[in-house]
Write a protein that binds this DNA or RNA. Structure first.
Lengths: 146, 146
DNA sequence: CTAATCCCTCTAGCGACTGGAGGTTCAAGG
DNA sequence: CCTTGAACCTCCAGTCGCTAGAGGGATTAG
C-alpha cells in the first residue's frame, strides 16, 4: 500500500478520536492494522474507508451492532439488500419516534419557561410543573432511547 | 399522611422501576425511607412526591444533577427563581439542538431508504451512502443523545 | 543527539440505569 | 399457628459508546 497513516493521521482524516479508534479495534469494529517495527499502528486506505463508514453510520445514529451487520452485508455483494434496508428503516422509525418525543418535551419546556414571572421559587412555574404532572399536557413520556 | 408504601407500591404509583428507586436512593437523589422491623423500605407521601418530581424531570430530559439542583432550589422558597429558570432554558436549548440534529438525520435516512431498489448489496444505496459521505447533504453531525 | 511529540497498554470512569444470584421478610390462606 | 409464594434485601456485574489518565516506549525534525 502506498498510503500509510499513523493513528493520529487517521484520526485527523476522519474526525474520530484516537482512543475511539483503538476502542473500535478492541471490539472488532475496525480491522487490526499492521504495526511498525516499534509496535505502532500503521493504517492504509482500506482502514480509512472502513472508519469513515463507521463514523458516518454513527452520525446517523446507528448502533455499533447495526454497523457491524451492515459491514458484514456489504461484503456479500450478491445478497439481496433487504436486510440492509430493514436496518435502515428501523433506524428511521427510531429517529421518528425520538423526534416525536422531543417535540412533546420541547412544547412542555417552552411552556415552563414562558410562564416564568421571574419572581421567587415559591411561585416558580418550573418547579410547579415538575412537581405536578397534571399541570402539563402529559404527552411527553418515554422520549429516551426506548 | 399515614400512607405507607412498599418499594413495589411506589414503583407502581410512579412508573419507576424498583431497582431504579434503590439506585436513586444510593446516589442521594431520593431520601432514604424508614425501614420495617425486617429491614424493608417503607415510603410515605413525601417520597411519592419526590419521586414523581424526579420522574417528570427525567421524562423532560433533565439530567440527575440538574434535578438535584432544582430540588435544592425548591427547598428555598424565598430565593429568586432565576437559577431554576436558567436550568430550564438550557434544557430547552439542548432539546432544540437535538431536534435540529435529528431532523437532519431523518432527512438523510429517508433518502437512503427511498432510493432502495430492492436489488442486491452491490448496488445498495444504504451501504453506498454510508460509505461515501459525499453522497449526502453532510449536515448531520453531533445529533446524539435522546 | 536531543527534544518534542507522538504512540503504546492498561485500568477505571461516565450517565443512568438494568439484571442476576442468593438469601430474607411479609401477608394471605388454610 | 403454619405454610406458601410473592415481594423484598444486598452486592456485584453488565449495558452503550466512548473518554481520560498513568506510566512508559517510539518516531521524527533539527
Amino acid at each position: 500500500m502506498m498510503s500509510d497513516y499513523s493513528i493520529g493521521a487517521l484520526s485527523r482524516q476522519t474526525g474520530v478520536k484516537v482512543p475511539t479508534i483503538r476502542y473500535y479495534e478492541s471490539i472488532g469494529m475496525l480491522d487490526a492494522p499492521d504495526r511498525s517495527p516499534g509496535g505502532q499502528r500503521r493504517y492504509d486506505a482500506q482502514h480509512l474507508e472502513q472508519l469513515r463508514f463507521i463514523r458516518h453510520g454513527r452520525d446517523l445514529g446507528f448502533g455499533l451492532d447495526d454497523l457491524r451487520a451492515l459491514q458484514g452485508l456489504s461484503r456479500q455483494p450478491d445478497r439481496s439488500c433487504d436486510a440492509a434496508d430493514r436496518i435502515a428503516r428501523q433506524q428511521l422509525a427510531d429517529v421518528e419516534r425520538r423526534l416525536a418525543g422531543l417535540r412533546a418535551v420541547r412544547k412542555e419546556l417552552k411552556r415552563m419557561v414562558a410562564q416564568c414571572s421571574h419572581g421567587v421559587m415559591d411561585e416558580c412555574h418550573v418547579i410547579q410543573t415538575l412537581s405536578d404532572h397534571g399541570l402539563c399536557d402529559g404527552d411527553h413520556a418515554a422520549h429516551n432511547k426506548g
